[in-house]
Structure formats: structure tokens, C-alpha cells
Design a protein around this nucleic acid. Sequence first.
DNA 1: CTGCATCCGAAATGATACTG
DNA 2: CAGTATCATTTCGGATGCAG
Lengths: 125, 125
Amino acid sequence: MATKTYPETTPEVDALVAEVIARVADRWTMEVLEALTQGGTMRFTRIGEAIPGVSQKMLTQTLRQMERDGLVIRTVHPVIPPHVDYELTPLGFELSEAFCGVWMWAEKNCKVVAKARARFDGRAR
Amino acid sequence: MATKTYPETTPEVDALVAEVIARVADRWTMEVLEALTQGGTMRFTRIGEAIPGVSQKMLTQTLRQMERDGLVIRTVHPVIPPHVDYELTPLGFELSEAFCGVWMWAEKNCKVVAKARARFDGRAR
DNA sequence: CTGCATCCGAAATGATACTG
DNA sequence: CAGTATCATTTCGGATGCAG
């Protein structure tokens, strides 16, 4: 954006980028990224506890997609009861760092946004 | 994330941050951000042309939300046919810069992700 | 404990038609 | 040109039950 300067992007690559962005910008994906970044290697249930509001189904689904995309490593310890660890790959960690800026923006400006909304909604009437 | 160190965050603020992140990390929001960052002040139709696959409905909706959140300014010129300009606010521009890292990550790694998927899908069978 | 399968209602989105 | 309104469809997401 401000400093991005890519001379040549084919339509196919653009589409792929858009698709990856759409996937990665998913709400739960971002929260999992955050949880694993802060918590290191974590078990399934602990990740769920770290993310308020996520259902087991969405968590499973999100972790699977992230595994498929090469963002996390899933390690199954063949014991009873099951023990499954998740951790970020280097690729996932890079993404997490990339999102860092967005996170800080949100934490810094969430109240500014709240005020903008209040003003907008006030004008609307 | 990697460098984030916020000592105190109340649950209410966390929820607000999560909400703002979820809103702002929307696929179309990011694409509009990208378009306006690169194109400066743009008209409705031109933004739509710059974003492959967006429907008129989603574009309208996204721009309204962004206006409400204080990310863009919408200027209506009262002429016939209508002429409406959109441009980023300073807040919107800041967000755009924050997203820069994610865009670069995606452009740099979209093929890596594609390969990871292929490998995963191969193992699946 | 982890997580898959299924069902079902709710919400998001796309297509289309219409308007100032 | 820049929307709004409506309808059809898809997708999302939660709840539940079951399995290894």
C-alpha cells in the first residue's frame, strides 16, 4: 500500500492473492493466529479457551484450514485420552507478524471508530 | 503479536477490538482500502472496476460501513448524472498502512500456500 | 480429549429489476 | 451514475450425538 510497489502482477496471481487474503482475513483464523502467537504450542481445548465465542466446530474447521495452508503444525500424540498440539509454522509466524500492525491499529483506534459510528448514526436521523 | 505487549486490557475493550478487527478485516473492506490507497479519490464505479468480483450491493454496503467507521469520506456532487467521490480519511490511510504487511505477505507467499494445500490434499488420500 | 457427522435456523451474498 | 429493493441461494455457525 503506502510503500508497496509491485511492477507486474498477472490476473491469475491477483486472484490467488485475493483468495489467500480472503481466507486469511477470516475472523477465527486471526484469533487463532493471535492465540498461538502468544501461547506458543497449545492444545485444542486451550486454544478454544483463549478465544471467547468460538465453537468447537469453527475451531476445528479453522485449524484444519490453517494446517492445510501451511500456517500451523498439528501433532497428534497417540495416547488416551487424545492429546493434540498445535503450533505456528514459520509461515504462520510471519503472517502473525504481518497482522501485528493491524492489531495495534485496532487497539489504538477502536474508540475512535466507536465515536465515528456514534457521529454517523447521529447524523443519520 | 510478535512485538505486542499490552499490560492491561479490559474484557470490554477486548470485545470492541475483536469487533473492529472482524469488521475491518472483511474481504471487501481490504480490497476497497487497497483500491483507494492506490487510486486516491475515486468514483463509485471506478472502485468497482478496480475490484474484480465485487457486486454492486457489496460495494455499496462496504463503502457505507467504512464511511460509518470513519475510514472514508463520501462526497456527493449534486449533478445529473450523479457523481460521488470516495477518499480515505487519515484513519483509513493509517489502517491501509497497517494492512500493507499482510498484503505483502500474501503476495510473497500465495504460491507457498498453494503448494502447502497441494501437499496436504495429496496426503489426505 | 479431540473431533467428525448431521441437522437446522440465521445471516451473508448474488442476481435482477427498478429509481432519481 | 449511483444507488435501493427484493428475492433466491449459498454459506455460516451453533447444537447435538457419537466415536476413537
